[in-house]
Amino acid sequence: MSPSPPVTTDLSPRRRQLLDAGLQVVADEGLRGLTHRAVDRQAGLPEGSCSAYLRTRKALLVALTEYVASSLAGDVDALARDLQGCPGESDRAVQLTRRLFQRWVEERELLLAKLELSLEASRDPELAELMATWRSRLVDVVDGIMAAQGKEHSAERAETLVSSFDGILFAALLKPRTARKDFLARSLQLLMTSMAAPGQG
């Protein structure tokens, strides 16, 4: 199983405050707006606070990528634990997954930062490695969920499912707020019942 990204519980309160502010800046302005000054303003801290912890913009990008990856991995691990309690219950699996995705879409800062950083990672090998660690972890978890549910599974099948999840999340962000819940429910039901077919054993 792939190693998990650095855990967010190890962060000092001030560092967490800065990274939460960075998430908000990226959600509002994209990576173009991510500067030390912008983070300080968002956090309500004196100018120079962010640069005291993260001296360069690259250090800020790396720390934010680790923070996003660790937060998402923690959510996925929690989902996996919940699903272990209902093996074979496909409807329950869809419901729990939809509940997580709905929270991600409603609390959109984390998801928007993940999308922005994924694009940046396509041009930055260091960020790409951090994102790959989180993605591999997600593929491992999804493969384990499919196995526990008695479904046909493989790493390739799980990776396809994860890529489809990415598309559903992005599409949900583009929907009117009132339409997102129904869209997620329909899309996940279709995807998870079609891709996670019963094993042929």
Rank of each mutant, 00 (worst) to 15 (best):
Q84A: 13
L119E: 05
L115F: 11
A93K: 00
G85H: 04
Q102L: 14
E109C: 10
L119Q: 14
E106I: 08
S122V: 06
G85D: 07
T97D: 03
P125I: 01
D124F: 04
W104N: 01
L83R: 02
P87E: 12
R123W: 02
T97H: 08
F101R: 06
V94M: 01
E116F: 04
L83N: 04
R98Q: 12
L79I: 12
V105F: 12
K114F: 12
L100W: 00
T97E: 03
R98A: 14
L100Y: 01
G88M: 03
E116C: 12
R81F: 13
L111K: 06
R103Y: 00
G88F: 00
P125L: 03
L79H: 11
V76E: 08
D91T: 06
E116N: 11
S122Q: 11
R99W: 02
V94T: 11
E106D: 13
L96R: 10
V105G: 08
A113F: 00
S90L: 14
R92G: 07
E107V: 00
E106Y: 11
E126S: 08
Q102N: 09
R123T: 09
L111C: 04
R108V: 07
R81N: 13
R103T: 10
Q84F: 00
L111G: 10
L111A: 05
R92S: 13
E116D: 13
S118W: 07
W104K: 06
C86W: 01
Q95N: 01
R81D: 15
P87T: 02
T97F: 08
D82G: 11
L96N: 04
L119A: 06
L115R: 11
Q95E: 15
Q102T: 03
G88N: 02
E109Q: 13
Q84N: 07
D82A: 15
R103K: 07
A78C: 04
L83F: 01
L127G: 03
E109F: 00
L117W: 02
K114S: 14
L110E: 08
S118V: 04
L115C: 02
L96I: 06
A80I: 05
L112V: 15
D91N: 09
P125G: 07
R108E: 14
R108F: 06
A121K: 07
L100M: 13
L83Q: 04
V94E: 03
L115V: 15
L111I: 08
S118F: 08
Q84S: 09
L110Y: 03
L119F: 10
L115A: 11
L117F: 01
K114V: 00
V105C: 13
R92P: 03
